[in-house]
Write a protein that binds this DNA or RNA. Structure first.
Lengths: 193, 193
DNA sequence: GTATGCATGTAATACGTTACATGATTGT
DNA sequence: ACAATCATGTAACGTATTACATGCATAC
């Protein structure tokens, strides 16, 4: 049942080769030159990770032996890989995603675009906003409880965390407008009256 | 020269035992029950990390053999540990801290309270805000450049990142008011006219 | 002929995760 | 008698990091 969960890097690579076939070098450059720099572009991370994905049957690589240079190995997602990716991006957002896997959230949402429908995007964003609200309440209670004991810096650091969560929730609710029920396409105009 | 850099967990533990002597179990509970849950409370992470800190001379542990239970081992920071901690928290914030070590920023700032003076806090926050501004400019340029090619979800995900950075910069500038030059103490009243 | 870019990889090391082990005390 | 709490640890495993290795093609 539990289908061998991948690492964040594994999902990132899987999602990218699912968008379009790419070589290890393509992926490295992507991590170097785009805001995905969150992931390491080091070959010692990427090539072994691609191997694991291939051995696990999530991606298939074929050697592109066009004459000039050292041959590229181009990967694409298998149906098993696509399924694992779908499961990952559509999985309900839970509390742990907020505190230990913050970085994955944007990635999951970005990949969700090519995979799910507007209903999936709505579910993701609504759930995200709800979980954040709950976490903000917890943090504010903690902050209230420590008012007396904690240092100024401790309180400020916690407030920083709270502000970041609030900003993310605002973003989620704004993004939701792009997936309004009944909207045929795009963010144009207000919601159905 | 380069004094064997510690891991994030290592710095977290070091900073906490620098505040006051604590046992491994104290630290585990802290990670379980406070917003520091970002760090794992698993014994397989904490006890080995404390060992490494002790072997490296950053902390010193002594067994607290008060009768009742299994004896606690209570750690406190050595002067070498305090120095390493000071170096870490006062180190200028750089671009890489933003993208690959976001989680450490709040921690560094929180510990800075017990270590540096208001001038250190100002430097930290000003530098942080400046680095964020630069990163936001980069991201917005990237967003502008991908307008045409990228998907709605990709653009929204990037906007999320931008919003989070902006929220952090706002927080930093607000927090700065607590460390105004000439202010004797606390955030009371506006800045010197 | 030297550096840079394309393109793949390996080796050593250290670290975190999960799960398990141990054992005493207190509460029901 | 059993569970929970205090308290410390170990073992197996997988993975990321850093640094190195290789080799051809093109540009200066």
């Amino acid at each position: 049942m539990a289908p061998a969960p991948l690492t964040p890097l594994g999902y990132a690579l899987l999602g990218l080769v699912h968008q379009q076939p790419r070589s290890g070098y393509d992926l490295r450059r992507l991590f170097e030159s785009t805001p995905m720099a969150y992931f390491s572009s080091s070959p010692g991370a990427i090539y072994p990770a691609l191997d694991r994905l291939e051995r696990g049957g999530f991606v298939a690589g074929r050697v592109d032996a066009r004459q000039p240079l050292r041959p590229r190995k181009v990967y694409e997602a298998t149906s098993k890989g696509a399924e694992a990716l779908r499961a990952w991006v559509t999985k309900p957002v839970v509390h742990e995603d907020l505190v230990r896997r913050e970085g994955e959230l944007d990635l999951r949402f970005a990949f969700l675009g090519g995979i799910g429908g507007p209903a999936d995007s709505r579910r993701f964003l609504e759930r995200l906003a709800t979980e954040i609200d709950a976490e903000v309440r917890r943090l504010e209670q903690h902050l209230a409880g420590m008012r007396a004991v904690a240092t100024l810096h401790g309180r400020l650091a916690l407030e920083s965390g709270i502000e970041l969560y609030k900003a993310r929730a605002r973003w989620a609710r704004r993004a939701l407008r792009h997936f309004d029920t009944g909207a045929r396409r795009g963010p144009r105009r207000g919601r159905k009256p």
